[in-house]
């Protein structure tokens, strides 16, 4: 049941992206209702798939990397809707949704792989993983806003308006989205790291110092913290900040996906060593 729901969601997302394209190309003030309908329906199917999995697992489906990726994709689509309703940026879909599609695909491909990762239960862990994914969603939005900002800034500096000049929102709107999502993302990232530390100190009895994922998370967290504080001085406002946000997002993706395959404790996949 659950894989079918996931594939339906994926197909609807794909359809939604295709249907959203004409609105962007033709510079319509809003996305067509068919595009929004397909995406909304996709979101429902996606939610149903996650719910089905949660029932089967008896816990939130964030305990293996594919489910976590799928959960992230679900959050990101939800975020797309919220941001779209707030800012009415039609071009947002073009930047956000293909990435969401790939994430959903990745989540769906191995979605049936129910790894019950031993010690991965308990309240702290759920809060930890949930917060992390919310944090990732916020910072993903920050990266999307940064990309839109960089393109629009380039158009304005070049003084030769091309296709994007007409279709992307103003620098101010990109900047506002960038800052708000950064605050949101950083808040949950911080919460996620703290709860992770609490859980780890209980579950692993202090044996976690060299877990690469934890180290990488700290590095990411520090990048974003610096980015956030630079906002107060204004020194990284604009282009430079946008580049740092992209760098931070790349680091985060490495943390989330790359290190998951290396890390022992966070190896949401087959666990190589018996440290449990």
């Amino acid at each position: 049941m659950q894989p079918i729901l996931s594939w339906c969601a994926l197909a609807l997302y794909g359809l939604g992206i295709l249907l959203a394209l004409p609105s962007v190309i033709r510079r319509r003030p809003s996305l067509s209702s068919s595009a929004l309908g397909a995406l909304g329906l996709g979101l429902l199917f996606h939610g149903a798939a996650l719910a089905a999995q949660a029932v089967a697992l008896g816990s939130l489906p964030i305990t293996d990397v594919h489910s976590a990726v799928s959960f992230f994709a679900f959050d990101a689509t939800l975020a797309f809707f919220l941001v779209y309703l707030r800012y009415r940026i039609t071009s947002l879909g073009v930047f956000m949704l293909p990435f969401v599609f790939v994430l959903t695909l990745a989540g769906t491909l191995r979605g049936s792989h129910d790894s019950d990762a031993g010690g991965f239960h308990g309240g702290w862990l759920l809060i930890h993983t949930g917060s992390m994914i919310l944090g990732y969603t916020g910072l993903f939005l920050t990266a999307v806003a940064a990309i839109m900002y960089l393109i629009q800034e380039r158009e304005l500096k070049s003084k030769q308006p091309r296709a994007f000049y007409y279709r992307l929102p103003s620098l101010e709107v990109c900047d506002s989205l960038y800052y708000r999502s950064l605050v949101f993302g950083l808040t949950f990232l911080t919460l996620g790291i703290i709860t992770g530390l609490i859980w780890a100190s209980r579950a692993w009895h202090g044996l976690w110092e060299f877990d690469p994922k934890i180290v990488a998370s700290f590095v990411t967290w520090i990048i974003y913290l610096i980015l956030f504080s630079s906002r107060w001085t204004g020194s990284w406002r604009g282009r430079r900040g946008a580049y740092v946000a992209l760098f931070g997002f790349a680091a985060m993706m490495v943390t989330f996906l790359g290190v998951s395959f290396l890390s022992g404790q966070h190896g949401l996949l087959p666990n190589p060593g018996g440290r449990r």
Binding site: R27, Q152, L156, Y165, Y166, P169, S170, L171, E172, V173, S176
Partner: peptide, 21 residues
Amino acid sequence: GTAAVSVSYAAVELARKIFGS
């Protein structure tokens, strides 16, 4: 009918692309 076709309106349009409102 949206893109500005006079110099002074083009300036306003650019200001909007930078500052939003």
